[in-house]
Structures are given as structure tokens and as C-alpha cells.
Design a protein around this nucleic acid. Structure first.
Length: 476
DNA sequence: TCTGGGGTCCTAGGACCC
DNA sequence: TCTGGGGTCCTAGGACCC
């Protein structure tokens, strides 16, 4: 038996923990640029605010309906997520953390009344973190997801067939067949995990509208007519597990950092600064996973909403001469790629850097020398054939910016080990003194120049749980 | 008349999720 | 004035191989 545990309106609920007066009021959390609504309280949903709806389209509701908007505070949400996840991990043998606000639990081998266990878990998370959750049970992950959906619907608008007894914690398997069929018939096929807008439109053409239709369908036939994803989803709904719990994720396959800007940015120097900053961020996250990247992609985009601007959305992928997690190599590669795709005279409104072909640092070709001096490497690590340096690749210019950093790499294999130590030191310094403490020169704006691209974040709450100087204060 | 056949790897794009 | 930022998996088609 699986459970899906999910925080209701996660970001809004996190804000409400520390601002209890927001309870019962319509609240939205805005995206990085204060541009769009990325989380909504139930009250905001009732006002008609849609997911990802631009803020300027709904801001009139501030006065008209008391809508409260907050800038995203991901540091807070991440920390609250960790607390919820560790509580949930305590009640089941296995846990898969599926997203910042959801996890699957695998109760295989656990005896007793699981729904009662789910209610206990819900109560505990609420008491210990202040976050309201919903819990859905099922014999497959897709059924657990579906039960979770029903638990939320029954909580918000109880009534037939979403009876109040299904609210908050729900196991459709416990219902009499007739009631269960009524619930399935009242739930749209598009509400099922894995059935998106395109697929549900096509399903409707084939006469499949509700979850009951899906359950009664011939999975193999839908598989031929659509694809294997649909087939698996139908089988899971019918009770045949096709998806396993993944409680030991291997790390990401790609890492991306991208942003929309507060203002259009046409000029190359500013884009170099921005892309350098993104690369610094994504390189730090790469090292956190003890991984290296084999390729790097840079992209730019103008705004399709600025109708009168010339549109341009270029991108390019650079295969790295050898997989690396060295910020300097990655920034150098990113800036080179950026120069290749940038064209003058375009109002770029978005840029991004993506690292792909990620591999564990220890297994990567050429990584031997990264950790060569680390005694922890031990006999377990794969010290393959001697790394041959591709001389000529790494001595390259740094676009005239960095200045000679060493020059020793052509003669001594100790240089990469030194690079690894340098990155460790860089990460340690930034961990201690803040992320901007030490960075590459191209990511820093000359002191006199104003920053035009910075994201707006005018409504961010304090980082109550992760910054001592922003900690919540209680007054008598 | 008749134009091999089977395999792998890579990439771009689509669809979906939160 | 102002329109999110991450991820995953699958498929089709091209390049290449023997």
C-alpha cells in the first residue's frame, strides 16, 4: 500500500505559519520577478486566480477583495519542506521525496489501520510544523495520487459524491463498489497524474471523459492508440503497479538556472554578468551533488509579449572537453557560448544556463585527478587509466577577463587537484560568509554601474528559520 | 519493375509534472 | 509598465556502423 502526502497550497501555508493573520484571507505567492502567481490559497482560487496568472492581471483584487501577494521565499519553503519530509519518513519503511511538497510512502509490510496511521501523520505534521497536509492511499502510486486529489476536493467542497468522510485522509479502496464508482465517475480524466491537457483532449475525442471511463478501458488498446505512458497510467488505475518507489534517487540528470529580468537587457556586457552568475549558481549545485557536467547549454529569449520587439530566442550547447565542476571552466565556456548566440539590437528578457550529461564526480572520465590528493578516495574508487591531458584546451583565454590564473597545468598533473581544493575552499567560504562572498570576476558588476536586470522581490517575508537575523520574534 | 537490412547512438521536441 | 523556474520521460528521425 502506498500513500501520497502533500502539503496543501505549500508556499502559502509556509507563509501562514509565521503570519497567522493570513489565515482565511486570499493569499498568493509570486514568482521570482514578482511577475506571476505560483501559489494560491483556497480563498485566492475562489476569487478566480489561476496558476501562473500574471500579477498585473489580478492586482486589482488587492483593494477589491483583500488579496495579499508575497514574493517567493524559497529558502523558507525548502526548510519547511525538510521538516515535513523527516516527520513523514518516520511512519513508513520507505519514502520517495517527489517534490518540495509531496512524498510517496511505501507501507509494504506494515500491519494495522493505515488510514488511522495517515490521520496520525497529518496531525503530527500540523502540530510540529504548522503545515496542513492531505494524505491519499492506494495500491499503486497513481491510485494514491488520485485518492489525494479526492481528499483535497472533499475537504474544500464536501458533498456527493465527495463525502466529508473522504476529506484530508482518503483510501478509495475502503469504499463500497457503488460509492467508489460514483467518485471515479465524478472525477475528470484530466485530474489523473500523467494525463495532461493534450492527452485529455484526445481521450475525450475517443469518448473517455472520467476516471471511471479510464478504469473500464482496455489498457493495451489505449497504449496502441496513444502511448505507453497512457497505458501505464490506466494499468495503475486498475490496480497493477507499473511505477516503483524510488527512495534512492541518483541525483539530477540536468541542472538549470534561468530567470526573467526586471528590465529588457540588450547589451552583451550585462548578459555576460548575468550568465556568469547563473553559471556560478548551477556549478555550486553541481558540486553539492558531487557530480561533474559533460555539456553546457546557454539560451536567451526576448519576450513574446512585447509584440513590437524583434523576437530572438537562440541557444547553443557546448560539449566540454572533459567533464568538470570547476566554476572557472564552466563560466568560461558559458561566456564563450553566449558570445556566439547573442545578437545586437534585441531586448532579451530571459536567459538561462543548463548543465547536462551529469556524471558522478568519482566515475567521470578525467576526474581521477580531481580527487587524486584526497585520502578519502580509498580503494573503492575507480582509478582507471591515467588521465591524459588534452593540452591546448584548458589554457584558453578567459575572454580577456580573468587574467592568468595559473599556467602550471601544462606541465604538472597536480593542477586539477589544486582546482578541486580551490572549489572546496570557494564553497566553504561562501557557505560561511554568504553566496556572494567569493565569485568569478565576470559575475560582478562594476561598482558604479546600476543593476537593471535584478529581479524585483518587493514583498518577500523574512527567512524565519534559516537566518538568525531574520528569526521570528515573539512579544508578550 | 526490382535500389539491403539491422542495429546503436544522439538530439530535438513534445508532453507532462510541481 | 507588468506574463515562473525548475525537472522527467518518451519518441521520431538522422547519422553512422557493419
Amino acid at each position: 500500500m502506498y500513500a501520497l502526502v502533500d502539503v496543501n497550497n505549500m508556499y502559502v501555508s509556509c507563509e501562514r505559519v509565521f503570519r497567522p493573520w493570513l489565515a482565511g484571507r486570499p493569499v498568493v505567492v509570486l514568482s521570482n520577478n514578482d511577475g506571476a502567481c505560483i501559489a494560491r490559497s483556497n480563498e485566492a482560487k475562489d476569487l478566480g486566480v489561476r496558476m501562473a496568472q500574471p500579477w498585473f492581471e489580478v492586482r486589482h483584487l488587492e483593494r477589491a477583495a483583500g488579496l495579499v501577494a508575497l514574493s517567493a521565499n524559497f529558502e523558507l519553503y525548502g526548510d519547511m519542506s525538510n521538516r515535513m519530509m523527516s516527520i513523514a519518513a518516520g511512519v513508513a519503511p520507505r519514502q520517495e521525496i517527489y517534490s518540495i511538497d509531496e512524498c510517496f510512502l511505501d507501507f509494504d509490510g506494515v500491519p494495522g489501520d493505515l488510514v488511522a496511521l495517515g490521520r496520525d501523520l497529518r496531525r503530527r505534521v500540523l502540530q510540529w510544523t504548522g503545515l496542513p497536509t492531505s494524505v491519499g492511499f492506494g495500491t499503486t502510486k497513481t491510485l494514491a495520487k488520485l485518492a489525494n486529489h479526492v481528499a483535497k476536493a472533499a475537504d474544500r467542497t464536501p458533498g456527493q459524491p465527495y463525502d466529508a468522510k473522504l476529506a484530508q485522509v482518503c483510501d478509495l479502496g475502503t469504499l463500497p463498489p457503488g460509492e467508489r464508482a460514483a467518485v471515479l465517475a465524478a472525477t475528470a480524466a484530466g485530474d489523473v497524474w500523467g494525463i495532461g491537457p493534450k492527452t485529455s483532449a484526445k481521450l475525450a475525442e475517443a469518448g473517455v471523459h472520467t476516471v471511471l471511463d479510464l478504469v473500464q478501458a482496455d489498457a493495451a488498446m489505449l497504449g496502441r492508440r496513444f502511448n505507453v505512458v497512457v497505458e501505464r497510467t490506466v494499468r495503475e488505475l486498475q490496480g497493477t503497479p507499473c511505477l516503483a518507489i524510488d527512495d534512492a534517487p541518483e541525483g539530477n540528470q540536468q541542472l538549470m538556472c534561468s530567470r526573467s529580468f526586471g528590465q529588457p537587457v540588450p547589451d552583451l556586457p550585462t548578459l555576460i554578468e548575468v550568465v556568469s552568475q547563473f553559471t556560478v549558481t548551477v556549478a555550486r549545485r553541481l558540486r553539492e551533488q558531487a557530480a561533474v557536467a559533460g555539456a553546457l547549454q546557454v539560451f536567451l529569449a526576448t519576450s513574446p509579449y512585447r509584440r513590437h520587439d524583434r523576437q530572438h530566442a537562440p541557444g547553443a550547447t557546448l560539449r566540454l572537453p572533459r567533464a568538470t565542476s570547476d566554476t572557472r571552466e564552466l563560466v568560461s565556456a558559458a561566456v564563450r557560448t553566449l558570445r556566439g548566440i547573442h545578437r545586437d539590437g534585441h531586448n532579451y528578457l530571459k536567459a538561462g544556463v543548463m548543465l547536462t550529461d551529469l556524471q558522478p564526480a568519482g566515475r567521470a572520465q578525467g576526474a581521477l585527478d580531481l580527487f587524486d590528493t584526497a585520502p578519502a578516495g580509498g580503494p573503492g574508487s575507480d582509478h582507471g587509466p591515467h588521465d591524459s591531458h588534452h593540452s591546448g584546451h584548458r589554457g584558453g583565454n578567459h575572454d580577456g577577463k580573468g587574467g592568468g590564473n595559473d599556467g602550471s597545468h601544462t606541465s604538472t598533473p597536480a593542477a586539477p587537484a589544486g582546482a578541486a581544493r580551490l572549489m572546496q575552499t570557494l564553497d566553504a567560504l561562501n557557505e560561511r560568509f554568504g553566496r556572494q562572498a567569493v565569485t568569478v570576476a565576470s559575475a560582478v558588476r562594476p561598482a558604479a554601474a546600476p543593476s537593471r536586470h535584478a529581479s524585483r522581490q518587493e514583498r518577500r517575508s523574512p527567512r524565519y528559520t534559516t537566518r538568525l537575523d531574520e528569526i521570528a520574534v515573539a512579544r508578550a
